[in-house]
Design a protein around this nucleic acid. Structure first.
Length: 869
RNA sequence: GCCAGGGUGGUGAAAUCGGUAAACACGCAGGUCUCAAAAACCUGUGAGUCUCAAAGCUCUUGCGGGUUCGAUUCCCGCCCCUGGCACCA
């Protein structure tokens, strides 16, 4: 008997699959060689990996394996599964690593690309290798640049001088999404603020659509909630406060306008324009007061975001000397400056309501400002304290000290009426705000696609004409960021930097910033299906899009017939949207939001007019995190698991199977070495079973045990249902249970066997998890077959086989289980028959003998419960 | 602070439109085989209690209440862990 040798098996079938191209659907024709789903395309996509220097991490492998199991399952159900892979290799992360090891990013990319693809070949995934792509490939980033140009032409890319997040370590600006709790998402360095001019994409123009489409998405709740919170749409009022002795006013945004009678001061951000005009005002002589303000503002502006947040408990501020008038009651209230007010939230000015806002309360206490209750609470204890200015309370109550609104509910009628009243007397306006900001695209780094823009002294900014793309990233030796905020590309050769203006033909200069990595990954799924097609298919679309609504096309003077797309419309129509998108929850807001935004733009520009879906990923599955010995894997902890070692020791199949077994796929789980070894032993058992099976079925294909056959059909049912729901761990448990039943000898001491057909069904159930082993066994069972198990049809169970099964019914007396009786299905549905059996059963009889049955609770097929007194 | 997910044996975990808690596996213990060991196989394995033994009984899903014939599952109030958001006005 041969022993299980994963190494030889795996390398053999890997070659076979590549030669037979079994994972390579015909993207153009979509002809269907098998199955009843009749060539239905199924785009199964795992989230784009960036090739880290250490290579494939067991976390990546966990993600990919789960996605691959899904793809293989769908393929065996007859779908034409397209499962591409590529590398998100541009970006700060790769560049920083290259710098660390003293290599040029381009050179480093080649090395890690090779390593990564080798590993991806090993893990046994059914990738369509013809369609691989790398974001740093000029054939790819040509189109990333094209996307930028389209954004510009449609008025969605613009330059803005703004306070932006700056990472002192990465030496570049970051988008809001890339700053997590005041630190850089990549390197965890605290970010600072910096005022510069940058390119932005107007994602806020799509805020409502991004929000409104969320209910249509079949996504995990936690992801949709995260997106909802990130977009952060809130309805509020802009309330105007006149400044005493001036025509100027301060506008305050609030969602708690019902407390406006309780406003006793205003606070503005140090960046607020009223502060600027105060400081620059020539009419007032330099007073000590003004000097104090200048000092405070100066200091505040230098503080980093983090430091400003760190000062949370100890709020500081300075009085401006200005007074404002509360529009609802004419009260004169002081205007203060404090750095706890952020310039880019609301209007950069807040109304101080110390009795009903905790922060305002702290501030008022510190600077001895008036505290005035305007909401009364039913809880006397709280109410008295609020009245006496001893605490602030933010709950629902009844309005007091609020003129004609006295006695109305603060969050109900009172709130509504007060809004109407203020709007009517023109002191307030409805204003909906969003947390979402425009997407900052520019990066002052080297390793990315150069932003395809040209600056001409005469004509201003001009996009690089599409037929001149790509703007190749020049090879420069001195690519490192210097920390002066200037882009490395400013050190590019003159021939690159200097160009001609596409409009006037005069001298012009290229933009030297590169674009954000998230732009590369915001559209890659659209490119995959169209990769590698001949130039005929890579069409110049003449008529197809002539009707499309191109917002600014006239203005930019290009004709629709000149349009060329990065994808083939016919193929894209067939394959998009992505049927299943599988990845980690860490991209909840960043990548997923950007990709949705870009998709919506393409739709609006008419480039995806043949596709109905409003969303690129109607179905998303987010898998859990894999941890090691109870802790997140990290280099500093030294508990990072490298899949290579395990693959060479136990084979990819055992690792795949173990990863899928160690916990539920949506929750993640704990990786333990002992568990890994146990799974290898299981595969050896499977191997031996089929060795025996092959020999016995040669002798007699009909010899099988009927009872075992029933269990087989139960197993098919269970595995099919669980795999469909991504419940891989319990599907594997069911396979193990079958093995246990198989190995158990019959009462007369005989070994069990299956018919060859049934053995084939069983191994098919394992094929998604252990593709190599399954293929080997399949060909042992059917030595003449030229077909792969992975393109065979998924087995179906026979419901009739399960019909005659005995049902186990627990018998409870007063809610306590006293016996379990095994009955035939019709009996399990009949109360009288069940009662009769219970009354005769020795085990239950002892509880019933002296008692009277008061009530019988009977649930067919489930339980019988006798209540006795 | 807010939002989401979670807390079950020695360990990873199953089971939640309320119905036998601990499937499956790891580990451990004992055994078979062996000169011995490994591998493989068999048996046992939530805790307590009673018993020579068998059978049984009691308790047990983070804590405290509640609803119910019956609660890991539903409701109320807490505690802890993980992830996301946050001086958001």
């Amino acid at each position: 008997m041969d022993i299980y040798n994963p190494k030889t098996i795996e390398s053999h079938w890997r070659k076979f699959w590549l030669e037979k191209r079994i994972y390579q659907p015909d993207l153009t024709k979509g002809k269907k060689p098998f199955g009843k789903t009749q060539g239905k395309p199924y785009y199964n996509l795992m989230m784009f990996p960036y090739p880290s220097a250490e290579g494939l991490h067991v976390g990546n492998m966990y993600a990919f394996t789960g996605a691959d199991v899904h793809g293989r399952f769908k393929r065996m159900q007859g779908f034409d599964v397209f499962q591409p892979i590529g590398l998100d290799g541009f970006g700060i992360h790769s560049e920083n690593y290259a710098i660390k090891v003293g290599r040029h990013p381009k050179e480093h990319a080649k090395i890690s690309e090779k390593h990564f693809y080798e590993q991806l070949h090993m893990i046994g995934n059914g990738f369509a290798w013809d369609q691989k792509l790398e974001t740093y490939d000029p054939d790819y980033y040509r189109w990333t640049q094209w996307l930028f140009v389209q954004m510009y032409k449609h008025g969605l890319a613009y330059r803005k001088k703004a306070m932006v997040n700056w990472c002192p370590s990465c030496k570049t600006v970051l988008s809001d999404e890339q700053v997590e709790g005041g630190v850089c998402e990549r390197c965890k360095t605290p970010t600072t603020r910096k005022e510069t001019e940058q390119w932005f994409f107007k994602i806020t123009a799509y805020a409502d659509q991004l929000l409104n489409n969320i209910p249509k998405l079949n996504w995990p709740k936690k992801i949709t909630i995260a997106q909802q919170n990130w977009i952060g749409k809130t309805k509020g009022l802009n309330i105007s406060f006149k400044i005493e002795g001036s025509d100027a006013k301060i506008v305050v945004w609030t969602k708690f306008w019902e407390t406006v009678f309780g406003v006793t001061f205003l606070v503005v951000a140090p960046e607020h324009q009223i502060v600027a005009s105060l400081l620059s005002s020539k009419s007032k002589t330099q007073s000590p007061k003004l000097e104090e303000i200048r000092n405070y503002v100066g200091k505040a502006l230098k503080k980093t975001e983090q430091k400003r947040k760190a000062g949370e408990k100890d709020k500081t501020g300075v009085f401006t000397g200005i007074y404002a008038i509360n529009p609802v009651n004419g009260q004169k209230i002081p205007v203060w400056i404090s750095d706890y007010v952020l310039t880019d939230v609301g209007t950069g000015a807040v109304m101080g309501v110390p009795s009903h806002d905790l922060r305002d309360f702290d501030f008022a206490k510190k600077y001895d400002l008036e505290i005035k209750q305007v909401v009364a609470y039913s809880d006397q204890d709280i109410d008295v304290k609020v009245k006496n200015g001893q605490m602030a309370y933010e709950g629902e109550g009844v309005l007091v000290n609020s003129g004609e609104f006295k006695g109305l509910s603060a969050w109900g009628v009172g709130k509504q009426k007060m809004a109407d009243w203020m709007i009517k007397k023109k002191s307030a306006k409805w204003k909906t705000t969003y947390h979402l900001r425009d997407w900052l695209i520019s990066r002052q780094r080297y390793w990315g696609p150069p932003i395809p823009m040209i600056f001409c002294e005469k004509c201003g900014w001009q996009p690089v004409p599409e037929d001149q793309l790509p703007v190749l990233l020049p090879d420069i030796k001195d690519f490192q960021p210097k920390g002066d905020g200037k882009s490395p590309l400013q050190r590019a050769p003159k021939e690159w930097l200097e160009t001609v203006c596409p409009k006037c033909g005069g001298k012009a200069k290229r933009e030297t910033d590169v674009s954000d990595t998230f732009l590369d990954s915001a559209w890659y799924f659209l490119k995959y299906p169209s990769i590698g097609l001949n130039s005929k298919l890579e069409t110049r679309n003449s008529k197809q899009f002539s009707k499309s609504k191109l917002v600014n096309s006239k203005h930019f003077g290009f004709r629709n017939s000149d349009l060329e797309l990065p994808w083939n419309p016919e193929i894209t129509r067939r394959w998009l949207p992505v049927n299943a998108y599988i990845g980690g929850a860490e991209h909840a807001v960043l990548h997923l939001l950007y990709a949705r935004f870009v998709w919506m733009c393409f739709k609006d520009w008419g480039y995806l007019s043949s596709i109905e879906s409003d969303e690129p990923f109607p179905f998303l599955f987010s898998h859990g995190l894999i941890i090691k010995d109870g802790a997140k894997m990290s280099k500093s902890r030294g508990n990072v698991v490298n899949p290579d070692e395990y693959i060479s020791r136990y084979g990819a199949d055992a690792l795949r199977m173990y990863l899928m077994f160690l916990g539920s796929y949506d929750q993640g789980g704990d990786f333990r070495n002992t568990g890994m070894a146990g799974m290898y032993r299981f595969l050896e058992r499977v191997w031996r079973m089929f060795q025996k099976q092959v020999q016995s079925s040669k002798k007699n294909t009909e010899q099988y045990n009927n009872r075992l056959n029933v269990i087989l059909h139960k197993t098919i049912k269970k595995v099919t249902e669980d795999v469909a729901k991504f419940k891989y761990n319990t599907a594997i448990a069911a396979l193990m249970e079958f093995m246990n039943a198989y190995e158990e000898k019959t009462p007369d001491g005989k070994e069990k066997t299956l018919s060859t057909d049934d053995a084939g069904k069983l191994i098919k159930l394992m094929a998604p998890f252990t593709p190599y082993l399954a293929e080997e066994i399949w060909h042992n069972l059917y030595p003449d077959s030229l077909e792969s198990i992975h393109t065979s049809l998924w087995p179906e169970y026979d419901p009739k086989m399960l019909e005659g099964e005995q049902v186990e019914i627990p018998v409870q007396i007063n809610g306590k289980t006293r016996a379990v009786i095994s009955v035939n299905p019709p009996v399990a549905k009949s109360q009288p028959e069940m009662v009769k059996i219970v009354m005769e059963d020795q085990r239950t009889l002892q509880y019933l003998r002296t008692k009277k049955i008061v009530k019988i609770i009977f649930v067919a097929n489930k339980i019988i419960n006798l209540i006795v007194s």
